[in-house]
């Protein structure tokens, strides 16, 4: 390696370091979501297609909103709001459920850094 090589490689290491500082968060992005009612798979949503999905549960309709790469409960017939308090889900391996309505979502994805479960 010449002197110029060494300088260049140092600069490149700096660039990679900066990119870590700017963008790195562990946890892989989810690409799809499996929707279950009472444990039975009813739909698989592609998270690159934004939209709202109305899922018929045991007590009524749960509304899921999909934006690129993420998903959340926006409405559900439950009154305890646990599913809505969960907020946006965007990590592969994460999951959430509206228990009273028996509707659950599980995020899947296989990018580098995907997790197997989210502790909460």
């Amino acid at each position: 390696m010449s002197l110029a090589d060494r300088l260049l490689v140092m600069v490149l290491f700096g660039v990679v370091g900066l990119s870590f500082a700017a963008f790195w968060t562990p946890g892989g992005p989810a690409t799809e979501a499996e929707i279950r009612v009472g444990g039975e798979l009813v739909a698989t949503l592609d998270l690159s297609h934004p939209g709202e999905h109305h899922i018929e549960g045991h007590q009524g309709i749960s509304v899921l909103r999909v934006e690129p790469g993420r998903l959340r409960f926006v409405e559900s017939p439950c009154r305890n709001r646990v599913c809505i308090h969960r907020g946006w889900l965007n990590t592969a391996g994460d999951s959430s459920a509206c228990l009273p309505n028996r509707v659950s979502v599980s995020l899947r994805g296989s990018g580098a850094g995907a997790v197997d479960a989210v502790n909460h």
Binding site: S19, G27, P29, R70, G111, A112
Partner: peptide
């Protein structure tokens, strides 16, 4: 066009 993808960039660059 997926905001989550950006998180992978540092890993890929390294």
């Amino acid at each position: 066009p997926h905001p989550g993808l950006l998180h992978l960039l540092p890993l890929l660059l390294a």
